[in-house]
Nucleic acid binder design. Structure first.
Lengths: 368, 368
DNA sequence: CTGTTAGCGCATTCAG
DNA sequence: CTGAATGCGCTAACAG
């Protein structure tokens, strides 16, 4: 019942383990004939390398880790769940294991990283949503563990990342709302700790100013990237004497929560108050009304990130090139658009996106 | 920069690695004095056992795996995402790594299991949604790998599981709808391959019959546990000459999709047609209208499952006791209830559940 | 092109 | 109570 080992194969062939090992590993210094012979019998004997031994020898973990931050842990941030699935698929192709852990409190988040790093459970990490003073990134650099980030990281952290151009995306959203006639636009963001908040907030302000509108500080609320956060933030907004006529949310979950708050008050999202999200999670098209949002090309992001991480595993850590992706505005109905209005929007390019029956994709050209 | 090893600690103390190893492992045959000394310096030197070496020696992987089935992979089944997070938290407590992989096609699902098992990447698996002839379970048993299931498994598979009493839960839902006056109740399920479909479907039929209603085969549609599946299935239902006045969905994602289909047709879920879900994913309370559904106590489920899996790691595979949990009906608004109606429901016990502002929990007593 | 020699870091016999 | 010896299964120098 014991698994067949390299030695078994070597014995059966009358070769040394070295040769077998190298033949299987595809080293060039093995005759084609032997290689084939080895491969065949290894296969026949059902040989599979023992991972632990291999890793011990190679001093690698053969795995990549991710630690979900507390908010997402409760299922708050749907984007990360979807992203995670994409990442796991990409990693799969490289025969790397994907170790996922979730933190429910800040303390445990640190513990998890420490445990995973000190025990060499993983070769590197994917860090979601970089923060302003990101101890995770600091820690990993200090420990010399490879890491790449999903979302922009601060230049001084020297952590390569893949991110949408959040600022630009926000400008697209605000312009879109302004074009629909909104002048009273609110914003529900998240903790200033998160760079994603800083960037999207900056984009929001920029958009407001580019459209010649005024920024009303009463219209700005802090959520936490979750439905619940969006709900309560929207409640505050609605309690105002003169609430905004449109609310830009930092992500889709927030928008979903905000829409619920509207409905609770008897208001119709998309009719009485426009709502926009960010991320285009798969649920966005199924919301009521379907969410106008910014699309995150998760597949592409996951592929890029893993590629970059693999790069970092190399001895020669090539210069870090981060990726900033161009945003795509997805116009559905939560912004108050209907199909006819969508055609009216000038300077836009209408595409179709799945699920086709629920969506039209609009990609806006710069300064349209 | 090399990590401190057991030998380092032993040298520093003038002891043998054996003693240090045993002291740290808490063996009884080490004097209390030495143990303390060892512990202290090990700590001081920042010693952390090398995982790969430890595992190689112990012939274990120190990890538990899960392979997400294709449908969930696309973010289709939100329940699994939430469950996964809970599981990871529990595993964390046992210092076990959680390896997650996702399959995008059936072929790759098999490959993944094979890879993870033959390479001994994990010590055991958590299998979601057992199937009728479940090759995953067969394969794992053949390979003598520990496995427990989330959702009922077939008796002949001898795989312990944790599951809600799906049948009973469905009866609760149907009775609830019947009590609200519905006689034309539809059902959107999933593939008959899934036991969860068989059980919930059986519960549905049972409920219909217990309420003295007739089963209309036109009212039965097959989805795929995802929003998209629910959407298309509901479309078919709505295309009928006389559509049902209530639709019971196999899970929340399906319900969300179905509600979208209604809205697309200008119908109001909860008003024109009642909709119910199953799972109570965190988004359920934020749907429009909030979803009436069955709650899954994921925390408890995760804890149980991991406990059972650990049991199976033991030499003595104690008799397998599966867990069937009692369902809790969560009444929100997608069933057409409003607060006043909820009070009218007889034989129910009203509780509060979070988020409090959106929900009332109703636990029904047997045969109420 | 192939084999010999050495460990990777740890946990476990078996003797003291 | 402690230590010396052994090997988990594999890969990587270094010779030939």
């Amino acid at each position: 019942m014991a698994r067949t080992t390299l030695t078994d194969v070597a014995k059966a062939l009358g070769l040394s383990t070295t040769t077998v090992s190298r033949a299987l590993a595809g080293y060039p210094d093995v005759s084609e004939a032997t290689r084939e012979r080895v491969r065949a019998t290894a296969q026949a004997m059902g040989y599979v390398p023992n991972r632990q031994a291999q890793l011990l020898r190679r001093k690698r973990a053969g795995a990549v880790g991710i630690v979900l931050p507390p908010t997402s842990a409760t299922g708050g941030d749907l984007l990360l769940s979807e992203w995670l699935v994409r990442v796991s698929a990409v990693l799969q192709a490289y025969e790397l294991d994907f170790v996922v852990a979730s933190a429910d409190s800040l303390g445990s988040e640190q513990e998890i990283y420490r445990r995973l790093v000190s025990g060499k459970h993983v070769d590197g990490f994917l860090a979601p949503y970089p923060r302003v003073h990101d101890w995770r990134l600091d820690f990993l650099k200090r420990e010399e563990v490879a890491v790449v980030a999903f979302g922009r990281s601060q230049p001084e952290d020297h952590v390569p990342f893949v991110s949408l151009d959040d600022k630009k995306a926000m400008i697209l959203l605000v312009k879109h709302l302004a074009r629909l006639g909104h002048t009273q636009i609110g914003f529900i963001g998240a903790s200033e700790e998160l760079l994603v908040q800083r960037d999207r907030w900056m984009g929001f302000k920029e958009g407001i100013s580019q459209c010649g509108l005024e920024l009303n500080s009463d219209f700005v609320q802090e959520g936490d990237m979750s439905c619940a956060g969006g709900y309560f933030a929207a409640e505050s907004l609605l309690a105002l004497q003169h609430p905004p006529t449109a609310i830009v949310c930092i992500n889709d979950a927030t928008a979903l929560g905000a829409m619920r708050a509207l409905r609770q008050k008897g208001l119709r999202p998309g009719k009485d108050i426009a709502i926009t999200g960010f991320d285009d999670i798969s649920l966005a098209s199924y919301a009521s009304p379907p969410l106008t949002t910014i699309h995150q090309p998760l597949e592409e992001i996951a592929t890029q990130l893993v590629g970059m991480l693999l790069q970092r595993f190399e001895k020669t850590p090539e210069m870090e090139t981060s990726w900033v992706l161009q945003p795509t505005l997805i116009i559905r109905q939560s912004c108050g658009c209907d199909v006819s209005m969508r055609q009216l929007a000038s300077g836009v390019h209408v595409l179709t996106a799945s699920p086709r029956h629920l969506t039209s994709t609009v990609e806006e050209f710069e300064n349209a």
